[in-house]
Design a protein around this nucleic acid. Sequence first.
RNA 1: ACUUUUAUUGAUA
Length: 299
Amino acid sequence: VVSYNIILGGLAKLGRITEARKLLEEMVEANIEPDLVSYNILIHGMCREGMLSDARRILNTMRASGIEPDTVTYSTILDGYCKGGKVVQARQLLGEMLRRGCFPNAVTFNILIQSVCKEGRISEAYKLLQKMRERGLCPDTITCNIMIQGLCKNGRVDNAIQIMDSMCLQGSATIGEDEGSMTNASLSDRCFPDVVTYSTVMDGLCKEGRLDEAKGLFVEMLEKGLEVDEIAYSTIIDGLCKQGELNVAFKLLNEMQTRGCPPTKGTYNILMQGLCSKGKIDRAYKLLEYMQKKGCAPD
RNA sequence: ACUUUUAUUGAUA
């Protein structure tokens, strides 16, 4: 099964769902019964392709073959519904999950929290956090990152920074409503800021025109020895471009190359956008040629 | 005991 699952995963990742379905049938014929993981892979692939109702139908297929969907299965479809804005269906599925005695875990909650954050319902997100704790689940770094992004996108960058600071200090998420309720800060959640945390907050700061603070965080991240990736670089580069600090932005581009963090086409797009918005079309052209020379295909 | 396959977070548009 594992061998087949690996291939299934490969197909699913490429969005080749029809082939994945066929492979599943072949497995049955070859007397290798698809297992829980096989179905989860297929469902995930379908969700990524927006085939939500197909994914949903697989649930029944699974049950018919005597395989009970697990938390991963439900979370996968839930995420698909949430990302697709199908709130009603998401609620239904959550109910079904609970009715069947399948417990949500931290990932499930993270999906739900992200969903309400994207709708701008921050207080709802805090309520979910509360529920999460009541169920004995610890918010993890991803939970914090989701909250941080939600706060940033809703004009509450300073609250986001508070969360990040408390992550730094205690290595745990002290996330309760701002009115300092000292929730479970003692628990051994390993919940330190990572590159995503920093990138998210830097982006929030840049979008508010607080470039200097973002720069400060960037330096802090380097000092901490975190592995700065191309998105972190791109984030600050975008901030620099938008504030007209193109030369600094290009300095960072070079730094990326020397640090073994190769710029992607996204990075180049940001810089070309920056050049174009300043009317420097010639330099933008040059950069277009340059990225190709570096083996980066423009889109 | 350990080990292979599945779900959630960040940039440009």
